[in-house]
Amino acid sequence: MQFKLPLFPEQASSVAVQVDAFYLFLVLITTFFSLLVALLILFFVIKYRKRPGVEAEQIHGSTLLEIVWTVIPLGISMVIFVWGAVLYYHIENPPANALEIYGVGKQWMWKFQHPGGQREINTLHVPTGRPVKVTLISQDVIHDFFVPAFRVKTDVLPNRYVYSWFTPTVPGSYHLFCSQYCGTKHSAMIGEVIVQKPDDYAAWLASGKAEGSLASMGEKLFQEFGCGTCHRPDSGARGPSLQGLYGRPVRLSDNRVVVADDNYIRESILNPNAKIVSGFQPIMPTFQGVVSEEGLIQITEYIKHLSVQESEPLNNRTNPTELRDNEVPTIQQELQQGSQPAPTPGKKP
């Protein structure tokens, strides 16, 4: 047994410093009030111990004191609340320019994919100095992505993407824990986050054996499953075109408008009838059990690229034609009207 007695975890992200400052403030408050109560008790026990001939003085209470010790704790707790809420908002909302990495949790391992197609298991390489956003999903039970050195944690749910983001600051190797109990080998569902200087990270990326970028792998799957048979950018298509879809609002057949984000795309592949785009028939078969979570991420990444590649959506219905004029998918209408600004991607649902 080595004698190591650390009191603080390493600080390896920009937010770690802020969380620790908040922590120290709370420790100070807690120590103050604990000592106040403990010393008062000790003082009263000694000062007012039973003495011969001295009776207790009967006091019923004091409304003034009650107000004082209601209002002061209330004031302090409101400060804590606001500080905590502001920090939380910062921790929970990734900036738009973050480097995107994808992770899948399963009993009992973590699998990560980088945009360039590099994959790792139970290890995650990230560069210093820029925000990194990890999009996470579980393929079985609830897991939890916890990197103590970054002070971030998020439950990784089945059936829904969640996000964690951080800006690593110090190169090194840090613990990655699953902190939501997930069955037999919960405590073995651990890994390493390896923070590297940008150059080293680039070198690591280059050395990785990738079959191609995530988007290209997604394209392969797209073709393999024959998605393009229906999802074509022409007028006769039986499915809505996916060009320029990502991050845009979509009008559904029941007139609701939803944003085509990762969760929407994933749901539309696995449970196509849940949301039908206005003007189309519910004819798509489900791909539940056919595409893996990694595959879904790749297809989504491909669809994202369809938006990036083309500055102008290539759907023939961008310019309403005589064909099915009444059925024009509303993405384009919304765009023409300019009524719906593109939402900030990655907002936690």
């Binding site: 709370l26 807690t30 604990s34 103590p148 944690k153």
Partner: peptide, 24 residues
């Protein structure tokens, strides 16, 4: 004494930005 410590450390957990790190 112990309940005071237990209660005050509850404030850490009720504070959102802090709970993210110490939850679970």
């Amino acid at each position: 004494g112990l309940f005071t410590i237990g209660g005050l450390t509850g404030l850490f957990l009720a504070a959102l930005g802090m709970d993210v790190h110490i939850h679970d």
